[in-house]
């Protein structure tokens, strides 16, 4: 590890040791396997290439979510966010979506974003469930603060999980109303929402870690990478 200059050392947040998220896989309705695994800072530049095309898509607020995710990931990569993490979903090695968040305290989780690149299989819902699983079952937190920036998100999280409204509490993403997944709600909805098996077979995990960039974006008709 490179030696940090004094100023940089002072700028970086003090990090908490976080239990890693163990990879899992979920069979999709298409028969394909969605593998969810945790990224490191070193993976961020590659993941950004998958997200950047969506940062100008107005439909379903992909622009808002995409731009903020890029910012959050760059902030994490460059040590300007404390205790952030990122989970990525891949199908046949291709990046199909991601989720991120951070620990606000040891008891409270701060959900950032859920971005589904491939649409139609409810991958976003499964990735969101994986994120909540990380906070609740692995980080052992009591609650997670969640906001929605798109109607789809609101339907999937606030309504389907019956999240508790707690508007007096400010979420880090700004003035969007805050809702909370409590442990009681998690226990109520976990069985129906959170699927998957562990461990991921080595071969499947190796393919997942290739993280090939999406060649098709349903949100961008006619998209061709590099153009």
């Amino acid at each position: 590890m490179a030696v940090l200059d004094k100023m940089e050392a002072q700028l970086r947040p003090v990090e908490t040791l976080m239990v890693p998220y163990p990879a899992k896989y979920i069979t999709q309705a298409s028969g394909e396997k969605l593998v969810v695994h945790q990224l490191t800072r070193e993976d961020v530049p590659h993941l950004l290439k998958a997200i950047q095309p969506l940062t100008t898509v107005e439909k379903d607020f992909y622009d808002v979510v995409g731009c903020r995710v890029v910012s959050e990931l760059v902030g994490w990569m460059r040590y300007r966010v404390k205790d952030e993490y990122c989970l990525v979903g891949t199908v046949n090695g291709e990046i199909v979506g991601m989720v991120n968040g951070r620990m606000l305290t040891d008891k409270i989780g701060m959900s950032y974003h859920t971005l589904a690149i491939r649409q139609g299989l409810r991958l976003g819902a499964q990735l969101f469930a994986a994120k909540m699983e990380y906070h609740m079952d692995f980080l052992k937190q009591d609650e997670v603060w969640v906001v929605a920036e798109s109607p789809n998100g609101f339907k999937r999280w606030m309504i389907e999980y019956e999240l508790e409204p707690r508007f007096e509490q400010w979420h880090e993403l700004g003035g969007v109303p805050t809702y909370v997944l409590t442990r009681k709600l998690w226990e109520k909805h976990k069985a129906a929402k959170c699927g998957g098996r562990r461990p991921v077979p080595e071969e499947l995990l190796a393919v997942a870690k290739q993280m090939t960039l999406p060649s098709i974006y349903g949100q961008i008709p006619g998209y061709k990478r590099g153009e």
């Binding site: 979920i26 069979t27 999709q28 309705a29 028969g31 299989l121 499964q126 129906a192 998957g196």
Partner: peptide, 13 residues
């Protein structure tokens, strides 16, 4: 098979 028999069937379907 995925939507009827798989271990994850009740999550995805």
């Amino acid at each position: 098979e995925a939507i009827t028999e798989d271990e994850d069937a009740l999550t995805i379907n």
